[in-house]
C-alpha cells in the first residue's frame, strides 16, 4: 500500500470537488474491495476522500412509485428493506447471494457497482493486464479463463464484472444518479453505466473523474416473480460462474439479465421477447456473437440451463 492522504468531507458536492481537485484521488466508502486492491498495489490512490459522513444512507419512495436508494445504503440494509423484499425481490436475493454477512454490512450500494474484476491476472502485479496496466497485454487470453467473459469482451480484456447486485439492477432498469464538482447532476441508465472494454479496459464505467454516485433509483415495481439464481462451485462465498436475474410475469413474458458472463451485467432486451418460448430461445439471441475460450465455453450451456431453472422456478 502506498502512502496516501485522507479527508472526510460532509457534503456530496464537497466530496466531488475534493476528488476533482486532487490528482489520483479516489472515493472510499465500505472499502471492501478498494483496500484489498491497495494492499496489493493494484490501486494506488494518492488521496482518499471518505464519503461515509455524507448521509446518502436512506431509501426513499420516488414520485414515480419507485425507490431511491442512497449511495451509502449498506448491502445488508438494502437486502433487508421491506419494500425491496416485497417489490424488488430479485435485488434482495442478488445482494444476499454475494460476499459474506460481514462484507455486506460494510459494502455500499455505490461501491458494489464499482467493484473490480476478479481475473487472476488483474490480481498478480507480475503479470500482463491491460486493465491494471494499460498496454501491457492480456495474460488471460491464452491463460486461465474458466471464470472469465464469453461475450462483450475484447482482444484487450476478457475480464468479467464480478457482482450480483448490478445484475439485478440491470434487470430492473435502475438509474444511477451522480453529482460532479460543480454541483451538476446526471442520471445514467444502468445499461449505460458499465462500459465494454474495447481497447480501453481500464475505463470501466461512464463516470467522469470526480463524479460521485449519490443514489440508485429503481422504477416502479414490475410485479411478476423475482428470481436470482447464482451458480458457483461452492455453496457460498464465491463469484458467479453464471447468474441469472429474472422477473417472470404470469403470462410467461419477462426480463432477464446474466451475471458472470461479460464485462457488465448482460441483458439483451430483444431476446426477452422469446421468454415465453423458453430458455434456449432467449439465450440463443442473448449470446449471439459470443466468443468463449475453450475453458469457459461451458458458460453458454450453463446460462441456458440456469435460465431454464429460473423459469421452472417461476412457474412452480
Amino acid at each position: 500500500m502506498k502512502s496516501f492522504t485522507y479527508e472526510r468531507p460532509s457534503s456530496p458536492a464537497e466530496a466531488a470537488a475534493a476528488v476533482a481537485r486532487t490528482p489520483n484521488a479516489k472515493f472510499i466508502a465500505g472499502g471492501t474491495n478498494l483496500l484489498d486492491l491497495m494492499k496489493l498495489q493494484i490501486e494506488t490512490p494518492a488521496h482518499l476522500v471518505d464519503v461515509n459522513a455524507l448521509g446518502l444512507d436512506t431509501i426513499e419512495p420516488t414520485p414515480e412509485g419507485g425507490l431511491r436508494v442512497g449511495a451509502l445504503v449498506r448491502n445488508t440494509d438494502l437486502a433487508a428493506d421491506a419494500r425491496v423484499r416485497k417489490d424488488y425481490g430479485v435485488l434482495s436475493r442478488a445482494l444476499l447471494a454475494g460476499a459474506s454477512g460481514q462484507l455486506r454490512n460494510k459494502a455500499t450500494t455505490a461501491g458494489n457497482l464499482l467493484q473490480r474484476t476478479r481475473c487472476p491476472y488483474f490480481y498478480d502485479t507480475a503479470q500482463a493486464c491491460n486493465k491494471r496496466q494499460p498496454g501491457s497485454g492480456c495474460s488471460a487470453l491464452d491463460g486461465i479463463s474458466r471464470q472469465l467473459a464469453v461475450i462483450g469482451a475484447s482482444e484487450a480484456c476478457i475480464a468479467t464484472h464480478p457482482g450480483d447486485m448490478a445484475v439485478a439492477m440491470r434487470v430492473l432498469d435502475a438509474t444511477v444518479e451522480t453529482v460532479d464538482a460543480k454541483g451538476g447532476t446526471r442520471k445514467i441508465a444502468i445499461a449505460d453505466f458499465h462500459r465494454l472494454p474495447g481497447d480501453t479496459p481500464q475505463i470501466e464505467t461512464a463516470l467522469k473523474p470526480g463524479d460521485l454516485i449519490t443514489a440508485v433509483t429503481l422504477p416502479k415495481p414490475l410485479g411478476g416473480t423475482h428470481i436470482y439464481r447464482k451458480v458457483r462451485d461452492r455453496a457460498s462465498y464465491a463469484y458467479a460462474l453464471v447468474s441469472v436475474a429474472a422477473v417472470v410475469q404470469p403470462d410467461g413474458s419477462g426480463r432477464v439479465a446474466f451475471g458472470g458472463v461479460a464485462p457488465k451485467p448482460w441483458r439483451v432486451e430483444a431476446a426477452e421477447t422469446d421468454m415465453a418460448r423458453g430458455a434456449k430461445a432467449v439465450t440463443d439471441k442473448a449470446f449471439a456473437g459470443a466468443k468463449p475460450t475453450h475453458e469457459n465455453a461451458y458458460k453458454l450451456k450453463l446460462a441456458e440451463r440456469t435460465l431454464m431453472a429460473a423459469i421452472t422456478e417461476a412457474r412452480a
Binding site: 490480481y123 498478480d124 495474460s139 491464452d142 486461465i144 462451485d233 457460498s236 462465498y237 463469484y239
Partner: peptide, 20 residues
Amino acid sequence: ERGFFANHDLAGYEVPVHAD
C-alpha cells in the same frame, strides 16, 4: 504458459465453506 498457479488466493482457490 507462464508456469505458475494462477489462483493464488482464497477467493480463487476455493475450499469448502460451512454451507457446503
